[in-house]
Amino acid sequence: MRYEAPETIDAAVALLGSVGRARPLAGGTDLLVQLRAGIVEPDLIVDLKKLPGLRTIAKEKGGFRIGAAVTGAELREHPDLRKVWPGVVEAANLIGSTQIQGRASLGGNLCNASPAADSVPALIAAGATVTIIGPGGQRELAVEAVASGPGKTILAKGEFVTSIFLPARPPRSADAYLRFIPRTEMDIAVVGCGVSLTLDQSGTCTAARVALGAVAERALLVAEAGAALIGSKLDAAAFEKLIAAARKACRPIDDKRGTKVFRIDIAGVLAQRTATIAAERARGQK
């Protein structure tokens, strides 16, 4: 195995395309575990952290462009991001311990393609897009289109994610993310839920996106759950519909972390709780 830390995007693209089994490295909190366990045996590791733009958060078109290798700790410490996208920052900050936060990145969390990745439902709810670069050039994709199944992405050979873009927010918009774990920390989500919504001046929900993690082979955008909220005052009736839609969208498996029945049940509970937090945040903006 070889390790390279290129300083230009072109060099990184060339390296990743050069050998059969090449893996990009951002924070390494998943990759190193997989290396140690022999789950992956790459010939080449390409460290992306020295590439321009991969470690910075920049304001762009009223939104934020976040380098793929920006760490959870850096997201939390950014002066503005947390105010606009509290749910995304919360979700990223739930990934692992303080130590993991010092390394783990949004790009890595996304491309590791775990169905239970904490930041992904929040990014999907946020309507985030990703910039992908590779031998064929640059392309933009919706976050929800990146993972195709457990550990699998649609990225072609030599391609990698350079940044994630969080769009500008209309007034009275807010997001939130909650996950269910048996302990208080250090667990993989049994269910995760991201909600982003916008209210009008009367408090009616004009836009809403709801995403669920760990209830299918990849994080899901649940359009019906969002639709349940739109047009409502986020009242009990709307929440009933939200819960039903969230549960209906689940197609989980039984595994060591949770049963199907439990996951479906919890998905509804979390959808309501997360939407409640997002609504409170949006209402608080007056």
């Binding site: 390790y3 830390a5 490295l25 924070g27 390494g28 909190t29 190193l32 575990v33 140690r36 366990a37 590791i45 460290d47 952290k49 760490t71 700790a73 692992g96 311990s97 303080t98 130590q99 993991i100 010092g102 390394r103 250090m186």
Partner: peptide
């Protein structure tokens, strides 16, 4: 644990708390 789950290998790397079992030695340059 070698998997970042126990923190016994914690070090401070350029001011950041990390698990040294989850950092490649080459990254320490």
């Amino acid at each position: 644990c070698s998997s970042g789950d126990c923190g016994a290998c914690s070090v401070i790397l350029d001011g950041r708390l990390v698990c040294s079992c989850l950092v490649l030695s080459a990254e320490a340059e």
